[in-house]
Design a protein around this nucleic acid. Structure first.
Length: 449
RNA sequence: GCCCCCAUGGUGUAGCGGUUAGCACGCGAGCCUUUCACGCUCGUAGGGGGGGUUCGAGUCCCCCUGGGGGUACCA
């Protein structure tokens, strides 16, 4: 099978578009003799800047979705499109007409509910002749069959008066020339399929197998857009999601393999994904579930890779050790810095945490005792020793664990949330730990400082 | 307006005429735990409405309702 996907270059790769790209990719990569073509729908002059095209390609690469050969730009195929239009006119399948929206409206007013039929004026836009009898039936792997009465279809404009081809003509010709056998695309194209089928018939060409993937909606049930938060894969990337997790989640959005499996390796996805099992109803993008899946992937990531990704995202280096003790506490890469940034940038300024945790004499006392116990640790500055030292404070002072650990945490991190306390102390090192505790004690002794 | 599609808990889904309607996210409770998480246990919540067909319907048919898409010399 030969597949294609065709994002429009608006700069941001919409999640819905990413999902259809993924489905095409899984289908193509899951079969030995398949190939995948990337076509860029770049005839919209305003949106298809080189920057936008570049961003779309980057987004696909980030998702690790690859294609075969170079991207095909629709705009580069103008000559071929024009040639086909001429061929259709010569064959009597199309004609030139100056009729515009007003004429079409007038025609419908006069003839009742039926498709527009024009007459050959030898000039103007090119319209495809649609028969009055019969129906055009769309066969779709996902949604089954449905038929559209020809009499209801308008004579379709396939090229503008200036000779430029219209989308429907362009896709059909491009797919035909590329030998595309399976067209998997968004369901927003479903009602347009009969038009494209008419062009195919006029050309005497075989129809591809269609699969229209349901659209994605935001939490309010409306079309997914920027106001729903992350709506593009670029935003997902910046929010710290992992490509493999995004792929896993997207595959599951509108598709299910069985009654229990949630996590699929990419290999499993390639082997198990099938169009027949794609759902017919529109799905709502749920970022919480993506987070959950992402957390699982994050925790299973090799430390080196986690570190590399964190360093790429934050632009910092030397994150490996902090990454190691944070890995099981974060569910997106973006959560790392709020959790562990204090190692590098000093304690966070959180007056509330300071007041709540260090605001009492007892807490300060515990903190001092912890400091002394840690200071007395000569040589052995590792987790077991630290745990033993702090445990001693607990016992000697009759403290509950949190009465000691939380003050230490706030002194080091500035907040009540951090990686494990022993790991944190161990990683911070003796000098820095004692220094931060001293600073915190001094500061809390003189409130308002 | 017209055409087409869709309809299982809040969300994503499984089911394919006979099930205590399964799984996952979320949410709630508990356990674990040095905070937060993770993990574990239990729980919460579901086939839009009305007609058929059938011994039996979430599953098949029809109508309604709701939602979505299309209806451009946009893509």
């Amino acid at each position: 099978m030969r597949l294609r996907f065709a994002p429009s270059p608006t700069g941001a790769l919409h999640i819905g578009g990413a999902r259809t790209a993924l489905y095409n990719w899984l289908l193509a990569r899951g079969q030995p003799d398949s190939s995948l073509v990337l076509r860029i729908e770049d005839t919209d002059r305003e949106r298809s800047t080189p920057e936008n095209v570049g961003q779309i390609l980057e987004a696909l690469e980030w998702l690790e979705i690859d294609w075969d050969g170079d991207p095909v730009f629709q705009s580069e195929r103008a000559d071929r499109h024009a040639e086909v239009v001429e061929q259709l006119i010569a064959g009597g399948h199309a004609y030139r007409s100056t009729a515009g929206p007003d004429e079409v409206k007038a025609f419908k007013a006069e003839h009742g509910n039926r498709g527009f039929r024009g007459s050959d004026e030898g000039t103007g836009a090119v319209r495809l002749r649609i028969p009055d009898e019969g129906a055009t039936v769309v066969r779709d792997v996902i949604r089954g069959e449905s038929s559209f009465e020809n009499a209801l279809l308008d004579d379709l404009v396939i090229a503008r008066a200036d000779g430029t081809p219209v989308y429907h003509l362009a896709v059909v010709v491009d797919d035909l020339d590329a030998g595309i056998t399976h067209v998997v695309r968004g369901a927003d194209h479903y009602s347009n399929t009969p038009k494209q089928l008419r062009i195919l018939k006029a050309l005497g060409a075989p129809e591809p197998v269609y699969g229209h993937v349901p659209l994605l909606h935001g939490p309010d049930g409306k079309k997914l857009s920027k106001r729903h938060g992350a709506a593009s894969v670029q935003e997902l990337r910046d929010a710290g999601y992992l490509p493999a997790a995004v792929r896993n989640y997207l595959a599951l959005l509108g598709w299910g393999y069985d009654d229990t499996t949630t996590f699929f390796s990419t290999e499993e996805l390639k082997a198990k994904f099938s169009l027949e099992r794609v759902s017919r109803n529109p799905a709502i993008f749920d970022e919480q579930k993506l987070r959950h899946i992402n957390g699982r992937y994050l925790r299973e990531l090799p430390l080196d890779e986690l570190t590399a990704r964190l360093e790429a995202l934050t632009g910092r280096s030397g994150l490996r050790d902090a990454a190691a003790i944070s890995q099981e506490k974060i569910s997106t890469l973006a959560e790392f810095w709020p959790l562990a940034g204090f190692f590098f940038d000093g304690p966070v300024d959180d007056p509330k945490a300071r007041e709540k945790i260090l605001g009492s004499k007892r807490a300060l006392g515990a903190l001092r005792e912890a400091r002394d116990a840690l200071a007395g640790l000569d040589g052995a500055w590792d987790e077991p020793s630290i745990e033993a030292a702090l445990g001693g404070v607990l016992e000697a002072g009759g403290y509950k664990p949190r009465e000691v650990f939380q003050p230490v945490r706030v002194a080091l991190a500035g907040t009540t949330v951090s990686p494990g306390i022993f790991e944190t102390v161990a990683l911070m090192g003796r000098d820095e730990t004692l220094h931060r505790i001293d600073t915190a004690v001094r500061r809390s002794d003189r409130p308002g400082d």
